[in-house]
Write a protein that binds this DNA or RNA. Structure first.
Ligand SMILES: [Mn+2]
Ligand SMILES: [Mn+2]
Ligand SMILES: [Mn+2]
Ligand SMILES: [Mn+2]
Lengths: 226, 226
DNA sequence: ATCCTAATTTAGTCTAAACTAAATTTTTTA
DNA sequence: TAAAAAATTTAGTTTAGACTAAATTAGGAT
């Protein structure tokens, strides 16, 4: 356990958090290799190393995938907090658009001191969500809980409010932004085609319709107001 | 010539710029080892490498020290610009004190994109100087020229305005700040003791006297109004 | 139950950037 | 001007984190 984890390791842990948060309990070698853009063999190497530190950051058994230990989860949340605070700050304080901030945050998250983290947090008024609607862990690394459903699962005809959108792809964000499909927007699911699950979504504020495919629909989440 | 220089190399070039700017044309292996906090052998290694790239960043001959080439100077100024913009921004926008910013900038300078650089530059109104009075290279890497004399060289009895103070040591900065010895402050050199060159400096705004040793006196620079 | 394929791991290399110890060169001093 | 001291370079290791190629394992299809 070094004083501080390398940027590399921080990204490994963050990615494992993201994968295990959505697709269940374990992240596989190949999944990790894909999102990190490196070879599966390299992942195996690192994963073995991170499961042998004391305390270990990962729980790992050959061919069984990995999950975060308590220490690993803490480290992941720390970097996720910084990432999301930076995204929020760049938009609020420096006039970035929401499609520009992810790439910057991906780098800056590793260069942020605890002091800078808390000053930015304070300057923003201790925000709970980033520009894409992702929850920001608080200083004690507690994540705000939100009731949410994927757009893909919304019944046709139902009204809802957008909670979060995917945050990595600038193209997608520009498209969603142009349509007005942002956190807080009120929508209604007009139709879903039977074969390919493509959806027609009505944006109430503009009365315009947007077409969303099922992959994107999985990543847009909504509050159905209960 | 890689797409972008590593943080390590950026720091090498920056340090060489600083050393050659003050103490003449060449930086020695040992000087570099000292300021970088690494072994002389490691410096020799890196210096050999950086003098063999194309284009080379350093002009180097065995046992003769190194100096920056045009490419090396450009790379150094680029990172110095970022460093100083960050220091200024942290003070102006996030309430840092001037003794806290150097350490942060030392890290953040390597994580700053061209976009972030120019947005911060714009947010600050394209400043010419950082909080310690160090000149900030403009977007074309041109350094503002300033007429200045070291406090150590000021004749006794003469009035002057502080231009810049050293920026690395928080202790020194806290002391200077408490005394009111900041860029812009008007002072008068009251006395200089013959043997150890210690100086008594009068701060006009507060009518208080400060004692400054010769080492520090070399690093505080002044405008003598003409 | 066996085969096939896809996923994963092992083994061996590579590069960057540090280190120490030893050798060499330059500079200082006697 | 020769010896001693200081600075610098060379040689040989180390660590982190990647890679490729080859070997192994697990799970699904026959
Ligand atoms: Mn993001
Ligand atoms: Mn990252
Ligand atoms: Mn500084
Ligand atoms: Mn630095």
């Amino acid at each position: 356990m070094p004083e501080e984890l390398s940027p590399n390791i921080q990204d490994y842990l963050k990615r494992i958090f993201e994968i295990t948060a959505s697709s269940g309990g374990k992240a596989t070698t190949n999944q990790l290799a894909a999102v990190l853009g490196i070879s599966p063999a390299s992942v195996t190497n690192m994963v073995q190393k991170l499961s042998k530190t004391s305390p270990p950051y990962l729980a790992y058994q050959k061919h069984q995938g990995v999950s975060l230990t308590a220490a690993g989860r803490r480290a992941a949340l720390k970097i996720i907090r910084r990432h999301r605070l930076i995204e929020h700050y760049l938009v609020k304080a420096l006039g970035y658009t929401w499609d520009e901030v992810h790439k910057e945050a991906e780098i800056l998250e590793h260069a942020m001191s605890p002091t800078l983290e808390s000053r930015i947090d304070a300057a923003l008024g201790y925000p709970d969500f980033d520009p894409h609607g992702d929850p920001i862990p608080d200083a004690d690394l507690v994540l705000p809980e939100v009731e949410q459903t994927a757009l893909s699962r919304l019944p046709v005809g139902q009204f809802a409010v957008v909670i979060r959108v995917p945050h990595e792809d600038p193209q997608v964000l520009q498209y969603l932004g142009k349509c007005g499909l942002r956190p807080g927007a009120e929508i209604k699911l007009v139709a879903r085609t039977p074969y390919d699950q493509t959806m027609r979504v009505l944006i109430l504020s503009t009365d315009e319709e947007v077409v969303i495919g099922p992959t994107l629909g999985d990543q847009i989440t909504l509050s159905t107001g209960k």
